[in-house]
Simulated scan of single mutants.
Amino acid sequence: MTAGVLERARSGDADAFRELTTPYYRELHLHCYRMLGSVVDADDLMQEILLAAWNGLPGFAGRASVRTWLYRIATNRCLNAIRATKRRPRIEPVPPFEPPEPSRRGDVTWLQPYPDAWLDELSASPEVRAVRREDVELAFVVALQRLPPRQTATLVLVDVLGYAVAEVADLLETTPTAVKGALQRARAAVGKRGTPSDSGRGLGDPGEREVARRFAEAFVADDIEAVKRLLTDGAWLAMPPAPHEYHGPEAIAAFLRASADGRRTMALRLEPTRSNRQPAYTCSFVDHQDSWYAGQLVLTIQGDRITGITRFLEPTLEKVLLAPTSSWTGRAPGGKTGRR
């Protein structure tokens, strides 16, 4: 970015503003996703963030970088959204069969997957750390949702994005002592995570691919016993936006049997993909010559066993994940190009 671009953007040049902000769009979107746990909510909030930046740019003093200034706006907008309970649960789906009693009811029903294709876009940015698996996997995103909002922000800004404690204190308009306290409590709540040497762990790992392949074959064949053999004793099945969770191989198997019986003549088709740096499958129902989207399934694998299955049931998720998200249009509030 040149000083000329910044000055043109300050003067109301929408093209210059787009040039100024577009390089940071994906990383800011991922930041909102970590904070909110939902791609839909991250999409919505990015519109607010960019409009706030557009309106606030004339007052940008340049004491911090544009990137840090944008993270300040994004973080505070996320905190406001959480406080305003905009992190809305999705409509709970009604299954076409009678499911067994769940082991428990989950509390993060707004959770959605984040495609690896979007994460790969960040590799071209010299300002962004490599997206480590442990910084985006579903278990970490869920853990973040259960923290108090400012602890979430502090943990992400320091441990994931690499900001110094003093920088975060300035960004959150608090003291370094308060940041250190929030960070200590957040780390204790989330638990031990990986180290930088773990970057890329499991990506393309042949053992992981083999476990995922065996699961997919057994799953589409409704071979419940084969699925059970791949599960650890502590394995779980979650199905956002439904709150139902099943813990342990027997409980998971009971649900899968009921689901298979409920499909009757319909078969399942799985197409491999990746989300949250984890092996995943796009699910479709198949009935004679017709097929339709049935959500996405993400596996958590350790060694040669599956520890978690997250099956996202939203029928509209396909459009969300395929929709373009480079959403600054170059139009100022009110639909006019440029600032008045």
Rank of each mutant, 00 (worst) to 15 (best):
T2D: 15
A9E: 13
S11T: 11
D13E: 11
A14G: 11
D15F: 01
A16G: 12
F17P: 02
E19L: 00
T21G: 01
L30Y: 09
H31D: 15
Y33A: 02
G37V: 12
D43K: 01
D44Q: 06
I49R: 06
L51S: 11
A52R: 14
G56H: 07
G56L: 11
A61T: 15
A64C: 02
N80A: 12
I82H: 05
I82Y: 06
R83E: 13
T85C: 06
K86V: 05
R90P: 10
I91R: 14
P95N: 13
P95T: 12
F97I: 12
F97N: 04
E98C: 14
E101H: 13
S103H: 04
D107V: 15
D107W: 00
D107N: 10
D107M: 07
T109C: 10
W110R: 09
Q112L: 07
Y114R: 07
L122Y: 08
A124L: 05
A130P: 03
R132G: 14
E134I: 06
A139K: 09
V141W: 06
L144N: 07
L144K: 08
R146Y: 01
L157W: 03
L157V: 01
D159G: 00
D159K: 00
L161R: 03
L161T: 00
G162A: 03
V165I: 11
A166I: 12
E167Q: 13
V168E: 05
A169W: 15
E173R: 15
P176F: 09
T177Q: 13
A178T: 13
L183M: 09
Q184H: 09
A186G: 11
A188Q: 12
A189F: 06
G191V: 03
G194Q: 10
D198G: 05
R201I: 14
G202Y: 14
G204C: 12
R209W: 12
R213L: 15
R214P: 09
R214K: 15
A216T: 14
A218I: 14
F219K: 08
F219V: 03
V220W: 13
D223L: 01
I224H: 10
V227I: 14
V227A: 02
R229C: 10
R229Q: 15
L230A: 09
L230N: 01
L231F: 07
T232A: 05
T232Y: 13
W236A: 05
P243W: 02
E245D: 06
H247I: 15
E250R: 05
E250I: 04
I252N: 01
L256D: 00
R257Q: 11
A258W: 13
L268Q: 06
P272N: 06
Y281T: 03
Y281S: 06
Y281K: 06
W292A: 03
Y293T: 01
Q296K: 13
Q296S: 02
I301K: 03
G303Q: 11
T310E: 15
F312P: 01
E314K: 08
E314V: 01
T316C: 02
T316V: 00
L317S: 02
K319G: 11
P324S: 09
S326T: 06
G330D: 08
P333G: 09
P333S: 03
K336T: 11
